[in-house]
């Protein structure tokens, strides 16, 4: 497989605590790869390394054939133009309406103007079931609505690579399913490389191409989604079976 993102020996300490302790990970191009792992295991930190928001203490981050871990300024921005990211907390701009938030990357990053912006924004808002909510401000939305607005903002640019940090956390099961379906449909249609952090076990095994598990600061396993559940490692089995059997569908391992 050719990889779009390649992490080599990533180590990162935050607040004196080692979070990542030698992560080696290859994200295949044009596929949906899901990263699972316990709360606080460093999944969000890992995603932030992929887009250069955090720099590793040691190790390399390759995006295609560019090593970004020591880049800054315009060189880093050139790489970032290939990305979009949905943050765990959505990170909507408080001072802008939902419509303006989704239009923001089109206007500021792609320098688009006029009715084309409106058309694309309204299409995306409808897809995340926020049609007619464009005039509201982030503070007036529920957590789940904010998440979906953030998702619309990430999807609207149709970039090469999209990072999703828990796109369905905080959504009801029906909504979670429709968001999963949306991500998969968009991914199949545009063929972008998707990296998703998720707690939705077992749903992710049905929608992902690859699954990787982060544990103790390392990638404990990575396999095609249908093979991942067969991995014999007892810790992995424990982690994925709790989500599949004991916990009701739609809720998540916390």
């Amino acid at each position: 497989m050719t990889s779009m993102i390649k992490l080599i020996g990533i180590e990162k300490k935050l607040g004196g605590q080692p979070v990542l302790q030698g992560v080696d990970l290859s994200i295949p191009v044009g596929k949906l790869t899901t990263i699972i792992g316990g709360s606080g295991s460093g999944k969000s930190v890992l995603l932030k390394h992929m887009i250069g928001l955090l720099q590793p203490d040691r190790g390399e981050v390759w995006i295609g054939d560019v090593e970004i871990s020591r880049l800054s300024g315009t060189k880093l921005n050139d790489v970032r133009r290939r990305f979009a990211m949905l943050f765990q907390g959505a990170a909507l701009f408080d001072s802008l309406s939902v419509f303006e938030n989704v239009a923001f990357p089109l206007r500021e990053k792609l320098r688009m103007k006029g009715p084309e912006v409106t058309r694309r924004v309204e299409e995306k808002l409808a897809q995340v079931e926020l049609a007619g909510m464009g005039h509201k401000f982030p503070a007036e939305l529920s957590g789940g609505m904010r998440k979906r607005a953030g998702l619309a903002r990430a999807l609207v640019m149709e970039p090469e690579i999209i990072l999703f940090d828990e796109p369905t956390t905080g959504l009801d099961p029906l909504m979670a399913k429709s968001i999963h379906d949306l991500i998969v449909a968009m991914q199949r249609r545009f063929g972008f490389t998707a990296v998703m952090v998720s707690h939705e076990i077992p749903e992710i095994f049905a929608i992902s191409d690859w699954v990787a598990m982060l544990r103790n600061g390392k990638i404990a396993a990575m396999a095609p989604a249908d093979e991942f559940q067969q991995i014999a490692d007892p810790d992995i089995q424990e982690f994925i079976s709790v989500g599949g059997t004991v916990v009701l569908p739609g809720s998540h391992v916390r």
Binding site: I51, L53, N77, R80, R81, G89, A91, E108, K109
Partner: peptide, 18 residues
């Protein structure tokens, strides 16, 4: 500060906006 805490500043960064 709120923009920093809620990662809105990081979001600007990811959009290649300084």
């Amino acid at each position: 500060g709120i923009m920093r805490i809620t990662e809105q500043i990081d979001a600007l960064d990811t959009m290649a906006i300084n």
